[in-house]
């Protein structure tokens, strides 16, 4: 009992007197996952973090904090101390909060530890759809305006960006947009015939395509995908898409800006190493994600470019609440 108290007391003394970044981590790290359990952000974070923990030599306790399209989690981390003990595990959405009127913070208030991977969007149709590829779909929509039902996941979601892209490149898209909670439920509805076309992330649709319960219309990328070598790419149908692609949702680990440099360096090294783990790479590959592993200045450049392109695309499609200009986001190419 004496040892117990003595130990506990000295542990306190140690943390109070020498909580310098050198010993980081001296306590467990809270990992706040922006999305719910079982979602793709959750799966990715829960599968990379144990590898990073091993290198870091500490424990990361992961918690899901949902709500407000991820803004609740973002604000929680932004309100915590900038000491590296509260880490945000999120996706691309915060970059759109400002223009969508969902919040006044985004990743410019954070330091990127690692932008792990990027997803590739794909346009899929139900097995009974009267068209087999992108060109066929556009013809069908022209012949039957306002008839085809597109799945959506709310303003700012991947489908809204892809439909904005199609509208901009093709000069119009007369379809019904049916909102769902996420691409999972929407793809289920696609297989049941409740919607006809869904812009989704490749990883979510890949198994359905393999089984023949969905038809790939076009991959939204500039290069063919190794996972689906037979699926056509959208730039082959219309070169106009080259302006916007490659584009895709991404996952990243962040800490609040102002976190000591050596803590950032330690975390960055741990996640960079953890993301190289063979099991993790295979998992990401199976789900059709492209590994990025960006940090530091590269990550900042990527985030800035992504935000410019996407916010202005949405702005031009009339989907935003406030212009990107108000927040000092410059139009791309200017």
């Amino acid at each position: 009992m004496k040892h117990f108290l003595l130990g506990a007391a000295s542990a306190l003394v140690v943390t109070v007197s020498a909580a310098s970044a050198q010993d980081y981590p001296t306590k467990e790290i809270q990992g706040i996952i922006q999305w719910g359990a079982g979602g793709s952000t959750d799966t990715v974070m829960r599968s990379v973090t144990p590898h990073a923990e091993a290198i870091l030599g500490g424990t990361v306790v992961m918690q899901n904090m949902t709500g407000g399209v991820g803004a609740i989690a973002l604000n929680y981390v932004a309100d915590a101390e900038a000491d590296g003990y509260t880490v945000l595990m999120g996706a691309e959405n915060p970059l759109l909060y400002k223009v969508m009127g969902l919040g006044d913070k985004d990743y410019s208030d954070f330091t990127a530890i690692n932008l792990l991977a990027r997803g590739t969007p794909i346009l899929v149709a139900g097995p009974d759809a009267p068209f087999d590829d992108y060109a066929g779909m556009m013809d069908y929509i022209k012949a039957h305006p306002g008839e085809v039902r597109f799945g959506a996941t709310g303003p700012g979601g991947l489908p809204s960006v892809i439909t904005a892209m199609i509208t901009t490149v093709e000069g119009g898209l007369d379809v019904i947009s049916v909102p769902y909670d996420g691409d999972g439920p929407a793809l289920t509805a696609l297989q049941g015939g409740a919607i006809d076309v869904m812009p989704a992330v490749l990883g979510a649709a890949i198994e359905g395509i393999r089984a023949g319960s969905m038809k790939p219309l076009a991959i939204f990328d500039t290069e063919k995908n190794a996972k689906l070598p037979d699926a056509p790419i959208v730039t082959d149908f219309n070169a106009g898409y080259n302006t916007f692609l490659p584009w895709g949702p991404f996952f990243g680990v962040f800490v609040k800006k102002g976190t000591p440099d050596d803590v950032v360096a330690k975390l960055t090294a741990a996640y960079a190493e953890g993301a190289k783990n063979a099991d993790f790479v295979e998992l990401m590959d199976n789900r059709g994600f492209t590994m990025m592993g960006l940090s530091g200045a590269d990550a900042e450049a990527f985030l800035a470019k992504w935000q410019q392109g996407t916010t202005w695309l949405l702005q031009d499609a009339g989907l935003t609440k406030a212009s990107p200009e108000e927040f000092g986001i410059a139009r791309p190419g200017k």
């Binding site: 130990g7 981590p25 809270q30 306790v61 918690q63």
Partner: peptide
């Protein structure tokens, strides 16, 4: 269940880390 209730004035995390190390 690693539910992190607000720690407040008690340095819970340091305490647990101490035992983990032990």
């Amino acid at each position: 269940f690693s539910v992190l209730m607000p720690a407040g004035i008690v340095p819970e995390a340091e305490f647990i880390q101490f035992f983990r190390t032990l």
